[in-house]
């Protein structure tokens, strides 16, 4: 991969485009009509396997005085349970803590591939992954709401605000739009757009360095500045990664809170 990038450095396609997100096929190597296993797929499988194996191994023999592995796993779970689930959902939050922790850890790891040196791209920069995660959260909060309030009563509760009857026709479409259409969309698009833009930003600064170097040898200092910026932006990207995983989890919890709310 490094050799490839040095070869490519001769003629880097400077303005990076959406094409850069469609990586070449790996398993039928270089195949052009079979994209069933790419780097994205590999990263997804590695993330899932890593999470499952890590949590299984660290809870294999739980000890009273936790080992370091167990401590990390416990503090991840404890963070989500105490600071997100219980904080927003009260006592009932403990029931949702496993799902929220899984969501948080999964998104965090998937996002984290964006700045791991060899991987350098997050699967979440393809809309499919955030979309499916958002659909899961969406179906879940509707299901939970229907279970809590009972069938159609949930929709009555969610769609009909406490207002005099003559403005209800005005308000119900707004409620429907903001609760059942905007929520999954914004949940998916927020994560996708952040990861997409982050990858694009790093690409612009990395490739921009090469492009300036190729254009004119006098631009070498500027391309150095560009690469230093890439490193600085990688740290910024780390912040965005953690923040987006947290935001996704918190918003899911807040939708659950809305579905479980008793009166309003």
């Amino acid at each position: 991969m490094i050799g490839q990038s040095i070869v490519l450095a001769a003629d880097v396609p400077f303005p990076p485009s959406v094409e850069d997100f469609y990586l070449p096929s790996i398993l039928p190597w270089g195949e052009h009509n079979s994209y069933w296993f790419t780097k994205i797929t590999a990263l997804l499988w590695i993330s899932v396997a890593a999470i499952i194996i890590y949590f299984l191994v660290s809870y294999r023999k739980p000890q009273l005085v936790p080992t370091k592995k167990q401590w990390i796993a416990e503090s991840l779970y404890g963070f989500v349970r105490n600071n997100i689930a219980v904080d927003m959902l009260g006592k009932r939050g403990i029931n949702f803590a496993p799902y929220l922790t899984t969501l948080f850890v999964f998104i965090l790891l998937m996002n984290f591939w964006a700045i791991v040196p060899i991987a350098q791209i997050s699967p979440n920069s393809h809309i499919a992954f955030p979309a499916i995660l958002a659909v899961i959260s969406y179906v879940m909060f509707i299901y939970i709401g229907m279970k809590h309030h009972g069938g159609l009563k949930y929709f009555k509760h969610a769609l009909i605000p406490p207002a005099p009857w003559f403005i209800l026709p005005l308000l119900i479409p707004i409620e429907f739009f903001s609760t059942f259409l905007v929520r999954p969309f914004s949940l998916a698009v927020r994560l996708f757009a952040n990861m997409f833009a982050g990858h694009m930003l790093l690409l612009v600064f990395t490739l921009g360095g090469f492009a300036m170097l190729n254009a004119n040898a006098w631009f070498a200092p500027f391309s150095l500045v560009s690469w230093v910026m890439t490193i600085a932006l990688t740290f910024l990207e780390f912040l965005v990664i953690c923040l987006q995983a947290y935001v996704f989890t918190v918003l899911t919890a807040s939708y659950l809170q809305g579905a479980l709310a008793d009166e309003h």
Partner: peptide, 27 residues
């Protein structure tokens, strides 16, 4: 967690903006 089921204000800003936008877009 003890005194009241305090909902933190994390979601409220998003909810407010979402209501304004959807009201404007729908109608």
């Amino acid at each position: 967690g003890d005194d009241e089921p305090a909902p933190p204000d994390t979601g409220m800003g998003m909810t407010a903006v979402a209501y304004l936008f959807s009201g404007m877009l729908v109608w």
